[in-house]
């Protein structure tokens, strides 16, 4: 089934729920579909969150194209962001670009390490990464929660959040007063770079062959370890980076639970894009729009629930009828 049909069904379900559940359906629908374009603030925020989503989604693309399931994205983003924040807070005196870079590197490295552990367990012992990546992430999310609520908490704020990172480290805003910042450009650049890497380079080719048929890849002499541990590490790094960018671009502090859910959202984005990094740009914008619509619909109407999740779920039910991912459980 084409992605567009899956998305259409998802949106139709959203409309149905809004109409059924809202006391003023017209107002809710307007808020859902129109509000993201209603002013610079909403529009910029929508683009900004699409950018973070895109970075995580291309992380999913790398793993899935190698035939591996990374279900730990949520934790890799959140814990990566926390570690990035910690590094920025611990070294407040660095020159501006270096400080930002340190934050992002720490975030990416954290995500990479988390995912690579699942990759190593798969390579060494054939432990299913679909389970271990989720469990590791689920085990570490409470640790991050604890750090934010405890040792790293800024007691001067009412929010459960860390202190704010030095203002020099923050990414510059592109469309004030919205949150849109340079990270959106980074996201697009990364998507294009990943596309070129997968389609044009020898290593990208090796990754694709591994994802298509692991036995064939081994037979032509492609490293199993490299494209199991390595591919998951890159996937985790992109998730961690997404978390780091959110800190440097929008939140400026680790806020309890601030990113949770984005990891799952990224899987939907990547699958709707048929695991193509360039199409993921469009797909991330679409999901960013639907999310922003759901958020404003909740703010502006009487009605609050996880509309975005339902839309994602419906899309996921339909989208893989056509997407070819190797199902390893026969």
């Amino acid at each position: 089934m084409p992605s567009i049909v899956a998305v259409a069904i998802g949106v139709a379900v959203a409309v149905g729920l809004l109409v059924v559940g809202s006391r003023d359906p017209a107002q809710s629908l307007r808020a859902y579909f129109v509000s993201p374009f209603s002013n610079r603030f909403f529009f910029g925020n929508m683009l900004s969150s699409s950018g973070y989503l895109l970075v995580a989604a291309i992380g999913i693309v790398v793993a899935f194209r190698a035939g591996l399931y990374n279900l730990g994205g949520d934790g890799q983003i959140y814990v990566g962001a926390l570690v990035g924040t910690y590094v920025a807070l611990a070294m407040p005196e660095l020159p501006a670009p270096v400080g930002t870079l340190a934050l992002l590197t720490a975030a990416a490295a954290t995500g990479a390490l988390m995912a690579a552990l699942s990759g190593a367990a798969k390579h060494l012992w054939d432990a299913p990464e679909i389970i271990t990546s989720y469990l590791l992430s689920a085990a570490l999310i409470p640790v991050a929660d604890y750090a934010i609520a405890g040792p790293l908490r800024d007691p001067s704020r009412s929010l459960l959040a860390s202190a704010r990172i030095p203002s020099a480290y923050r990414l510059s805003r592109l469309l004030p007063p919205s949150e849109l910042n340079t990270s959106a450009l980074v996201a697009i650049a990364l998507a294009i770079a990943l596309f070129a890497w997968i389609e044009r380079t020898t290593r990208g080719y090796e990754l694709r062959m591994t994802g298509m048929n692991r036995d064939f890849a081994a037979y032509v002499g492609i490293s199993r370890a490299g494209y199991t541990i390595g591919a998951l590490a890159v996937s985790g790094a992109l998730h961690g980076l997404s978390g780091g960018l959110m800190i440097a671009g929008t939140f400026h502090a680790a806020v309890s639970g601030f990113s949770l859910g984005i990891g799952w959202n990224a899987i939907a984005v990547a699958l709707v894009a048929r695991l193509d990094p360039l199409l993921a740009i469009g797909s991330a914008l679409l999901f960013g729009y639907l999310e922003a619509g759901a958020r404003t619909a909740m703010l502006q109407s009487d009605f609050t629930f996880q509309l975005g999740m339902v839309v994602q779920a419906v899309i996921l039910f339909f989208v893989t009828g056509s997407v070819l991912i190797r199902s390893r459980h026969q």
């Binding site: 380079t201 020898t202 048929n213 064939f216 032509v220």
Partner: peptide, 26 residues
Amino acid sequence: TRGSAQSGTVQDNLIAVERRRLSRRG
């Protein structure tokens, strides 16, 4: 199951062994 990657193109399959010789700087 081993001899070919069925979801790849014919070219993908034909260059598999000599992928490095057919590449320049990666």
